[in-house]
Design a protein around this nucleic acid. Sequence first.
DNA 1: CCAGCTCCATGACAGCGGTCATAGTGGGTA
DNA 2: TACCCACTATGACCGCTGTCATGGAGCTGG
Lengths: 221, 221
Amino acid sequence: MAVSERGPRERMVFSAAQLIRRDGVAATGMREVAAHARAPRGSLQHYFPGGKEQLVNEAVDWAGGYAGKRVARFLAALSEPTPSGLFAAMVRQWTDEFQEVGFASGCPVAAATVDCAESTESTRTAAAAAFARWNRPVAEALTDMGVPAERAEPLATVMISALEGALLIARAERDVRALTAVAHELGPFLDGARTASRGSTGSPRTPAAPEPGRGARSGSV
Amino acid sequence: MAVSERGPRERMVFSAAQLIRRDGVAATGMREVAAHARAPRGSLQHYFPGGKEQLVNEAVDWAGGYAGKRVARFLAALSEPTPSGLFAAMVRQWTDEFQEVGFASGCPVAAATVDCAESTESTRTAAAAAFARWNRPVAEALTDMGVPAERAEPLATVMISALEGALLIARAERDVRALTAVAHELGPFLDGARTASRGSTGSPRTPAAPEPGRGARSGSV
DNA sequence: CCAGCTCCATGACAGCGGTCATAGTGGGTA
DNA sequence: TACCCACTATGACCGCTGTCATGGAGCTGG
């Protein structure tokens, strides 16, 4: 499953992302990608004449686009959109995955950044673009929810940073504790940023970790 | 410099951490570690009979201890200790490093987690222990500052998560923007957790990103 | 029928990885 | 002198990597 009936080229990009987010970039071999995608090895040099670098960059790019589009789906699933609700949905996607299929895989963009930020310029750029494609819709959603324009973008960065960091800790500990902690603690703070000019005077008692609309997930990555 | 006059064994652990945080675990070779530490190659199998796995684990362990001890130094440098001040100091260490020596290197624990969480159990455990050794002193400092006991530990996790995530983004973008954003935004929120029972009703106007005592850093890692 | 194209297949190559085996130091101690 | 020890040195091995070269399907169009 999950390897649906797309063309072999797209399957390879998808498989690359899968393997990268599990083992990292350096530990993921080209032959392994082809095998995982059930694609012929000879297709690698045909579809990706730029070699591994190109394949990795496309995988990172794909992941960035996926994360960005997912934000819209989360928003659509929220009955009453709030910053904390969006953040809880983003976090829940990961807690669900970890609890259902285990802690084997993390975020491919994080893996690419850690492995290639210094060694491969183009991949670093791709990772930066992926983060940007993720940050933008979150920031736009925040402004739509009433967050002042000048705070929307940094707050979106806070959300993504906290999520990525908690992801790391959760994988290391094999425990979703860190993820639930950031969702729980940051929820009221994010809601408090809506109308307040600054200083985060949150509404006195927003539900600590509001349940998102459920069913926001469509398919596991 | 930086490779001071410790024994060759410790130098190799230190060098391993340095190289891992720059290139990742898989891309860091044993021969490279020995060369970087100016240690004889033959010493590797003598000091680390457990091979690369042992060396990596000790490097991660070393990094965890270093991060933990650093918290105490940050606290000592703060004239009036506040959660936001501690967090700003933690973030500033990284913004300073990035601006002074560039974005080449990130956090070695994050790198080990991304590269080995699934493939090497012992390294994953070492990473979890490193996060714990970092989280504990932060949580203790928070309670000392008046944060309710039950929130201290999750809030410490929020701080470390946000820092690690912003670190990733900063390396990808080659810009400290993400780091300053989390410090700026989370500062008032953290201070607001001190006496409030919940809901983060921050003191109305804590300085947004309080300058830490400066001079908290001793030597670059 | 041949040409041209996309795509697939396979083998070879050079390089580097971690690890092992073996031998060699140098300095203490009996 | 003889012995033992911690430590160093070096070379070889095997496996795996990314990449390239070459050639073969299978179809389209003239």
